[in-house]
Amino acid sequence: MKPSRRLSVDVRVVHERGGESVLASDVDVADSVLSRARGLMFRRSIPHGYALVFEFGGRKRRGVHMVFVPFAIDVLWLVDEEVQRVETLAAWTGLASAEADRLIELPAGRADGVRVGDRVRVEP
């Protein structure tokens, strides 16, 4: 299975709303079918400033499940960098979906303050 691709040290996830705040500075991209399917499964935890970014070729309904993920996460569904949905998913049992061309998974609590309609970007 191809692991998710680690982006350079200078890549970060930035939330824009009345200013900017960095949600993550340790960013991986799930850019293969297998790395997208695996997501965060089988990991014991993720660091506070970490994000797993899922890039897709277009807008479509995208689901996230928490099977084999033993910790809660925040998920952002984006279309053209605009937040469509924000959800905290419970360990093991969380499940949600929304329209998106990009998904971002963060440690639970990192997306506090992010609202539908805000802009979130991945930047070098």
Rank of each mutant, 00 (worst) to 15 (best):
P107C: 06
S4K: 10
R62A: 00
V122P: 02
K60T: 11
L78M: 06
E99F: 11
G94S: 12
E55T: 02
F54L: 03
V13N: 06
F71S: 02
G113D: 04
V75F: 01
V86A: 00
R6V: 13
A30V: 00
F54I: 05
V79Y: 11
G117M: 06
S8T: 15
E20N: 12
A111E: 03
L7F: 10
V22C: 07
A90T: 14
S35M: 04
E87N: 00
A111V: 02
G113K: 07
I104D: 03
R121M: 11
I104V: 14
R38P: 03
H65P: 01
G94P: 01
A96Q: 03
R6A: 15
G18E: 14
E20D: 13
G18P: 04
G109I: 01
A30D: 00
V67P: 02
R44Y: 05
R43H: 01
A98W: 09
E82G: 09
A37C: 04
G58Q: 10
S8H: 10
V122C: 03
R119E: 11
G58Y: 09
P47V: 05
R121G: 09
V22S: 00
A108S: 15
E105A: 04
T93Q: 13
R115E: 12
D118W: 05
A91C: 08
A111Q: 04
S8Y: 00
V53G: 03
V83S: 06
I73P: 05
R12G: 07
L7W: 15
S25G: 08
E55G: 04
M41G: 06
L23I: 07
L106F: 01
Y50A: 00
E123R: 12
S4Q: 02
I46Q: 01
E55M: 10
R17P: 13
E55C: 02
V11A: 15
V69P: 02
D80Q: 14
G49C: 08
S35Y: 00
V22P: 09
L76C: 04
R44G: 09
V13T: 07
R44A: 11
M66D: 00
V22D: 13
F54H: 07
S97D: 12
V11T: 12
S45W: 01
V83C: 08
R17A: 14
K60S: 15
F71D: 03
H15S: 06
A90D: 13
G109E: 09
E20H: 12
V116I: 14
E99K: 13
V83A: 08
S35N: 08
K60I: 07
L89A: 04
E82S: 15
H48T: 05
A98P: 05
L52S: 06
E87M: 08
R6P: 00
E82F: 13
E82K: 15
